[in-house]
Design a protein around this nucleic acid. Structure first.
Lengths: 123, 123
DNA sequence: TCCATAGTTCTAGGATAATAGAATTATGTG
DNA sequence: CACATAATTCTATTATCCTAGAACTATGGA
C-alpha cells in the first residue's frame, strides 16, 4: 500500500459514522450486512448511509454484492491488513523495544489462528 | 480507546502531509526530530508544518519537547498501538480464518522483540 | 542590547466535505 | 402492469478544512 491509498482509507475512517459502519462490518465478518440493516442498527438515514458506504467503497475498505432487493456490504480485510501494515511498518526503525506493546496486541489476536499447526508456524 | 478519539486520530492521519510527518516520526523513534528538520526533509513551509503538527498533537499522535531553539517532535507509540487495536479488535468476531494475514503481519514485527525470552513469552 | 534563528499564531481566501430532502433506479410480488 | 420495498443519486445549503502570507514569540550568541 502506498501513501495515497493509505490517506484515502484513513480519511474515510476518520469520520465517526463511517468508522462505526466499518467496525460493524468487521465484526459481521464475511457474511456482511444489508445496507438497510446497517441503517437500522446505527440509526442512520438511508441517503447519508449510502453516501458514506460509497466513500468507504472508493477507499477499498468495503465490497458489496446484490442479493434480491438488498445490497450486502462487507469489510475488505485485505485493505485493513495492508493499512495496519503501512502504519506499523517502520515501527522498529530505530528502537526495537517500542514494538513490544504492538506485539502483545498481535499475539492476542493469534488466539483465532485457524489451526494449531498454523499457530505454531506463526510463532 | 473509544470511537471519538479513534476518529480524531484517523482523520488526523487521513491527510497526505500529516501521514508523511507521522511515518517519519515513527521511523525516527524516541529520538524524535526537530520541526525544522521535518520541514526540510518533507519540503514543507514552516507554518503549514506547524499547523499539521498541532493537529497530530491534539490527536495524541505526537509529543514534543523544547531543546534550545528547536522543538523536538516524536511519535506517540501508545496511541498508535491503541488505534491499531481499536481497528483490528473485532476482526475475529465471526470468522477466525480472516485474521491470519494480520497474524502474519504481526509475527513479522516480532523479529524486533527485545529479548528471546520475551519473544517466547509473547508466543 | 541587537540580531539571527526556530517555530508558532493570526488571518482570509478558496476548496472540500457533510447533511438531508426529493426524485430516481432496481427488484420482487400480487 | 401496478405497487411496495431497498438503495442510490441529485441537489443545495451549511460547515469545516487547507493553505500560505504576514506578524509575533522565544531562544541563543556577539
Amino acid at each position: 500500500m502506498e501513501s495515497k491509498s493509505a490517506t484515502l482509507s484513513l480519511s474515510a475512517l476518520g469520520h465517526e459514522g463511517r468508522l462505526a459502519i466499518f467496525r460493524l462490518l468487521v465484526s459481521a465478518g464475511p457474511t456482511g450486512l444489508a445496507a438497510g440493516e446497517i441503517a437500522r442498527r446505527l440509526g442512520m438515514v438511508p441517503n447519508s448511509l449510502s453516501a458514506n458506504l460509497n466513500i468507504l467503497s472508493r477507499a477499498n475498505l468495503t465490497t458489496s454484492r446484490r442479493e434480491g432487493r438488498s445490497i450486502i456490504y462487507q469489510a475488505d480485510f485485505s485493505t485493513m491488513t495492508a493499512l495496519v501494515g503501512f502504519l506499523v511498518g517502520d515501527c522498529c526503525g530505530g528502537a526495537p523495544e517500542i514494538c513490544s506493546p504492538l506485539n502483545q496486541l498481535l499475539s492476542q489476536s493469534q488466539q483465532c489462528a485457524p489451526t494449531p499447526s498454523r499457530q505454531k508456524e506463526l510463532c
